[in-house]
Amino acid sequence: MLIREYAEVDWVQVWPIVREVVRAEETFPYDPGMSEEQSRGMWVEAAPGLTVVAVDGNQVLGTAKMGTNRPGPGSHVATASFMVAADVRGQGVGTALCRYALDWARARGYAGMQFNAVVESNTTAVELYRHHGFEVLGTVPGAFAHPTLGRVGLHLMYHAF
């Protein structure tokens, strides 16, 4: 598996991943009715941010976006988001993308990385992030409407460098 910078030709494979994850309404607080154009605008980061893909040959396995969490006085903290194709989940793609994003942020001198809205029922992601040094700073109870679990919390997670 190789992680590389996203190229426009990747969108044809990234879009189905984004669409499936968002429309499942289980892990991301994005509008499931977003159009393809809106999704691309939301997912593909402009510099100095970065969008990457994890690939095996020509197949996109997953994608991540990373950048500054907040402008101005908050610009010393990074953020990132990750999506993995359903058929390769549990095979280390998310772990590799998380490591990549952390290394990217450290190399650019960020003081840490903040995740603003990690769905608490997404236990695989929560444990992955904890394993890589993130901690849950707080949880907004019932802030995410899960399609089968009802209202669940959204974690604010942080990793100081």
Rank of each mutant, 00 (worst) to 15 (best):
I17W: 07
G72V: 06
M83H: 09
A105N: 03
V84I: 14
E45S: 11
R70I: 11
E8N: 05
W104D: 03
A85H: 15
V119Q: 00
V55H: 09
P16K: 08
P29H: 04
E120F: 01
A85Y: 12
M42K: 10
A47K: 12
A80R: 02
W104E: 01
A24P: 06
A96G: 14
F115D: 01
G67E: 01
S81T: 14
A7W: 00
G57L: 04
P48G: 11
E45H: 10
A117F: 02
V77H: 08
G41K: 11
A54P: 05
M34K: 07
K65F: 08
R23W: 02
A54W: 08
Q91M: 15
T51D: 06
V53E: 07
G72C: 06
E120Q: 02
V44T: 10
I17Q: 07
V9K: 08
G41P: 05
D10C: 06
A7N: 00
D103N: 13
M42H: 12
N116D: 04
D31W: 10
R108N: 10
Y100M: 04
R40S: 10
S81M: 05
V12M: 00
A101P: 06
Q114D: 00
P71L: 13
N58I: 10
F82I: 13
V88A: 10
P48H: 10
E45R: 13
T51H: 08
G41M: 08
E8Y: 06
R70V: 12
R19E: 02
Y100G: 06
V52K: 09
G62I: 10
D56H: 05
G62P: 08
M83F: 15
D31N: 15
V60P: 05
R89F: 13
G94D: 14
G49S: 12
R106A: 14
A80S: 04
N58C: 07
M83V: 15
A7K: 01
L97H: 14
R23P: 01
V119A: 03
R40E: 14
V55I: 13
F28Y: 04
Q13F: 00
A86G: 13
G94P: 12
R108G: 12
T79D: 07
Y100E: 01
A86I: 06
W15G: 01
A7G: 01
V21K: 08
E25T: 09
G109I: 14
E25A: 12
M34E: 04
Y30M: 03
Q38H: 07
P16Q: 06
D87C: 11
V55M: 05
E26P: 05
A105W: 07
C98E: 05
A7V: 06
R106M: 05
A105F: 09
F115K: 02
A101F: 10
P73R: 15
G112D: 06
Q114N: 01
A24R: 12
A117R: 01
W43Q: 09
P29Q: 03
E36K: 09
V53I: 11
R23Q: 03
M83D: 04
R99L: 12
R89A: 09
G90A: 11
V60M: 05
V14F: 04
S75V: 07
R70N: 11
R70G: 07
S35G: 15
G72Q: 09
L61D: 02
V118M: 00
A96H: 12
T79I: 08
